[in-house]
């Protein structure tokens, strides 16, 4: 995997510039410093991108999930040692429902996925604004926050949880029928259709699954800063899609996967972190990431150039 070498190389470059950079403590910090929530979101959107669709609703979805979680959590007692633990599954359910709605809007109303999800993202932002009135909900439960504060093998607990989630995502991708179907739909919607797959159902399920991962991202984000608010998902869209593309999953679908995304997130974060360490101005940092997407997103050879399909029936991607 060339991408992995890329991450290592980038790391080496920054450690030359600043010798502190590659210490284990630092690596753990790269891991936690905002990597995990966007990583979860990136894993979720990976499935969508494999299907050849796009989902831009993550910021709204994360905001809604975070706010709903925090609201229920605080309402039921505010600590995991009470019935408030129910807020965890509730958050996942909300994420799934959000994704379901997103998928249904896309498939049933035949709105291209980028437009449907973009709108749903705004709906989510609005919804969370409505729920919070612009305020923040604080979640200070020590047990819940132990995701951030407890360390095992030098890494915060949430890093281990995230690893587990990624393994599950990989299992879904490679060992389940729905995972296979994502690739089939992305590899050729017509073909999947002509093979008797219910493409619409697969798409809706894909968005639902992504919603579940967005919910996990929301949980990690809340655990990390102890606040649920409308801005909880801020910038996740750009970071997650950048990571997926940099990891090598093609935006036209059919290839790539969870491991690519993990590597992509690492590269983006190493570079991001490295740029802060080097003291690059903020606007330059964003510019560099933009360039990265352009470089990673272009077709490398002829075989990767998306074919133009004959438009017959609903063209949904």
């Amino acid at each position: 995997m060339g991408a992995a070498t890329g991450a290592r190389r980038a790391g080496m470059f920054f450690s030359l510039v600043n010798p502190n950079f590659m210490s284990l403590r630092n690596f753990a910090r790269i891991g936690i410093s905002m990597t995990l929530p966007p990583l979860m979101v990136a894993v979720g959107v990976t499935f969508i991108i494999i299907m050849g669709s796009i989902d831009l609703s993550m910021e709204g979805a994360v905001a809604v999930c975070a706010v709903v979680f925090a609201a229920i959590f605080m309402w039921l007692g505010g600590t995991l040692a009470s019935w408030a633990w129910l807020a965890l599954p509730a958050c996942i359910v909300v994420g799934a429902l959000y994704g379901l709605l997103n998928g249904l809007v896309h498939v049933k109303l035949r709105i291209p996925s980028f437009m449907a999800s973009l709108s749903m993202g705004f709906v989510g932002i609005g919804l969370s604004l409505l729920m919070t009135g612009g305020d923040r909900i604080r979640v200070e439960d020590k047990i819940f926050r132990s995701l951030l504060t407890e360390r095992y093998f030098g890494f915060p607990l949430m890093v281990h949880v995230a690893l587990l989630v990624i393994l599950i995502a990989w299992f879904i991708q490679s060992r389940t029928a729905i995972g296979r179907n994502f690739y089939a739909v992305g590899g050729g919607e017509e073909l999947a259709h002509a093979s008797g797959l219910d493409v619409k159902r697969v798409r809706v399920l894909g968005f639902m699954l992504a919603g579940v991962f967005y919910a996990l991202g929301a949980l990690f984000a809340v655990a990390q800063i102890g606040i649920a608010e409308t801005a909880t998902g801020y910038n996740f869209m750009f970071v997650s899609i950048t990571s997926v593309v940099v990891g090598g999953t093609a935006l036209w679908g059919g290839n790539g996967g969870v491991w690519n995304t993990l590597v992509g997130v690492l590269i983006v974060n190493v570079i991001n972190n490295g740029m802060i360490v080097m003291g690059l101005p903020r606007y330059l940092q964003d510019g560099v990431l933009g360039l990265l997407v352009i470089l990673a997103g272009r077709p490398v050879d002829g075989s990767q150039i998306p074919r133009i399909r004959e438009v017959s029936g609903p063209c949904l991607s």
Partner: peptide, 8 residues
């Protein structure tokens, strides 16, 4: 387009 998925 409709017969096989290249890449699979």
């Amino acid at each position: 387009i409709e017969g096989i998925v290249a890449g699979m």
